[in-house]
Amino acid sequence: MSKDIFISHAVKDKDLADAFVDLMVTAMGISAENIFCSSLEGMSIPTGANFVDHIKAAIQKPKAVLALITPNYLASQFCLCELGATWAMSHNLFPLLVEPLTFEDVRGVLTGVQLTEINSATRLSEFRDQLNSTLGLTGKNTARWESKRNVFLKGLPKILKKLPSLEQVSTAAHAKVVSELDDARQSLADQEEELAEKNDLIAKLEKAKDKNEVAAIKRAYSGEADQLDQLETEFGTQLESLPRHVSYVACKELGLHQRVKIDGFKDADLADGLERAAGQKLIEIDDRGFCTLNDSHPLVKKMTKPLRALKSFIESASIELHNDFEAEHETLLALDNSEYWANRLDSRLQRMSF
């Protein structure tokens, strides 16, 4: 569970993080229970917990993320990931610039972000006021704050001097980090695009007038719906390449599992069409007048694969897809449903009698 404050820092900068957390606790009255700092005892990761998973959970919903920007921080892939996650999730970020870094040094990482120089008494007081506002604290004890702040600033040079220096990075290692950073940025861009799409979906759903519009919108944004449309198009294209009377036989035989019988008195047009189809070797008619598809004909054989794919997809589709389809089209998503064939696979079947 996220705490109010997440301290983003390099492990090598533990002493600096410790001193700064003490300043917040003693001078600002912030409870240590409300601070997450992975390198400090009592504020870090519980024994036995997965490090990465716990960090991910801790950075989900803090009220403020405090980043101690040092050379060690900029060299840490993990710290840059925390910074990227903070940016992607629009958290309140308070970047604290630590000497010897300058504004120019972090321009590429924090372009356009207001930085607080940690060694400036004035800027630290401004940081305190902003953080109090973000956390909903009063921050009235100014005298105590200034006293503790001055003690922190007096001891800061000694703390910074003891921090482990940044090791020289090889060209190959630098290139690898740059590549990984580019990948991380692309991943964040993809997530932003996905979020924008979901927000667009929510907006359209809120404007929908009835259940049919809701179903249509949901299907348009569903991966399953796209697959269904594609499979229907592929099979429907094969049906429409056949005479409509042969498509009718296919619907009855392959979908409804029924046999079509020629009856010139009942439906002369159907009988004539079936006789022509038999002459084209698309169907076979037995001596009792029952018609079946000629599986050896190339056009009939071409239906087999797309029909099998559509049948398999419908049988394994989610309940949500079936419900949305039925709400929009007011019919069942099923191959043994003649309305489904006529409305979604071959519109010529709407003129046929079932």
Rank of each mutant, 00 (worst) to 15 (best):
R128H: 14
K161G: 01
Q191M: 10
W145S: 04
G136S: 00
G29C: 08
K161R: 12
Q350E: 13
H322P: 00
L66Q: 04
D346Q: 09
E104Q: 12
T142C: 03
A17I: 02
L97Q: 00
A309L: 13
Q186F: 14
R244F: 12
V246E: 02
A57R: 09
M89W: 09
F6S: 04
L137S: 00
N199E: 15
L205Y: 04
N50P: 01
I314A: 06
G279R: 11
L188A: 15
L16E: 00
S247D: 08
E206M: 13
F127K: 07
G48L: 02
N72G: 11
L321M: 05
N92V: 07
F235K: 01
H329K: 12
A208F: 00
V246Y: 03
F290T: 07
L93R: 05
S187W: 09
K281Q: 15
K252R: 15
N132E: 10
D269F: 07
K266G: 03
R344I: 01
C251R: 14
T292G: 06
Y73I: 11
H54A: 06
D267E: 10
P71Q: 06
L131T: 05
P62Y: 00
D15L: 08
F265S: 13
G42N: 06
A49R: 11
N294R: 09
K302L: 10
F78P: 01
A172G: 05
A216L: 09
R123Q: 15
D15Y: 02
M43L: 13
Y221Q: 05
T116R: 02
H91R: 14
C37V: 05
L137A: 01
K161I: 01
A309D: 12
V21K: 00
M303Q: 14
P62N: 02
A32Y: 01
D286W: 03
A215V: 00
E234A: 13
D18P: 02
S296M: 10
K198G: 00
A216P: 00
F354I: 10
K261W: 03
S120Y: 02
G223Q: 05
S125T: 15
L115M: 13
I262Y: 00
S318I: 02
N199S: 08
A17T: 09
D295R: 14
E234W: 05
P46N: 03
S316K: 12
A225Q: 04
T142P: 00
I319N: 12
R185C: 05
A309S: 14
S353V: 11
E320D: 15
S125D: 15
K61T: 13
V246L: 07
L205P: 03
L66K: 08
E232R: 14
V109T: 15
L115R: 06
S120V: 05
I7T: 06
K301H: 11
A19L: 06
V246Q: 04
C79K: 06
D210V: 08
E315D: 14
D346V: 09
Q191A: 12
K154A: 12
R348Y: 09
V106Q: 09
E326K: 13
D263F: 00
P62F: 02
V178P: 01
Y221R: 07
R107D: 10
V25W: 03
I202K: 13
C251G: 07
L231M: 03
K266N: 11
L163F: 03
D22F: 02
Q77T: 09
R344C: 08
A216N: 04
A278S: 15
T138S: 14
L181M: 11
G84W: 01
K176M: 09
D272M: 13
A225S: 15
I118H: 08
I7P: 02
S90H: 14
N34Q: 15
